[in-house]
């Protein structure tokens, strides 16, 4: 093995959207060679109580791409640190670590994709499955010139059809929703309001 000075992978950072956390770094390039990387992490517990302990990431021991899905490693609402080293054959770089610790309560929450439909006079809503942490706060109302009484429903998980209301013939109903992530005590902004009109009364 020709001795190569392997630099530590630079620019470590975590990108997190909707509780999916991706660790990225800039690649270490050695012409004509494939450099691999290994990722380890420390939660607040390890940092304060067993500071020498680093835990191998669930999915990223000896990978060749400069990114790692660390969602399964970040499993508590505390500050986490990550470190990455490059390896080439028997040679390893030193570890590089995050400039700023990462806490999952800083994840970006986007408003939910929603589909409303009707089954006869039944108002139906469906959300994409966003994973185990997500609930949906649904607000809906019947459009009318004078009063607009808003109703609420919490939908515990996405991926299913949920009955919201039995509609009055010919009336128009509107729906909006936001995601709620209880473990980080946060919610997204509301999505675009969507409306649907119930069919008119069928002549006998």
């Amino acid at each position: 093995d020709e001795v190569v000075n392997l630099p530590a992978p630079p620019d470590l950072s975590v990108h997190s959207t909707n509780m999916k956390h991706i660790l990225t770094w800039s690649p270490v390039t050695i012409p004509g060679e494939t450099v691999n990387y290994s990722v380890e992490y420390q939660g607040e517990y390890e940092r304060y109580y067993t500071s020498s302990t680093w835990i191998p990431s669930s999915w990223c021991s000896s990978i060749s791409t400069p990114e790692c899905n660390v969602t399964d490693d970040i499993t508590a609402t505390v500050a986490y640190n990550f470190r990455v080293k490059a390896t080439l054959g028997s040679q390893s770089s030193s570890w590089s670590t995050l400039k700023e610790l990462f806490n999952r309560n800083s994840t970006v929450l986007t408003s939910p994709r929603m589909k409303i439909s009707k089954d006869g006079y039944h108002l139906i809503v469906e959300f994409e499955d966003m994973g185990p942490y997500f609930e949906f706060n649904v607000t809906y109302w019947k459009k009318s010139p004078n009063s607009q009484k808003e109703l609420y429903k919490i939908v515990r998980e996405g991926g299913n059809l949920v009955h919201l209301e039995t509609m009055e013939a010919g009336a128009e109903y509107c729906v909006k929703a936001q995601t709620i992530v209880e473990v980080i005590e946060r919610s997204s902004t509301f999505n675009q309001v969507e409306c649907i009109r119930a069919q008119d009364e069928s002549p006998l």
Binding site: E44, Y45, E46, I55, S58, A76, V78
Partner: peptide, 23 residues
């Protein structure tokens, strides 16, 4: 603190619990 663990699978499980308990 008083349990030393070398198996990464066990380490990860205990880390989840320890950090959750700390929170």
């Amino acid at each position: 603190r008083n349990h030393e663990e070398s198996d990464p699978r066990i380490q990860r499980g205990l880390s989840t619990i320890a950090n959750s308990f700390l929170h």
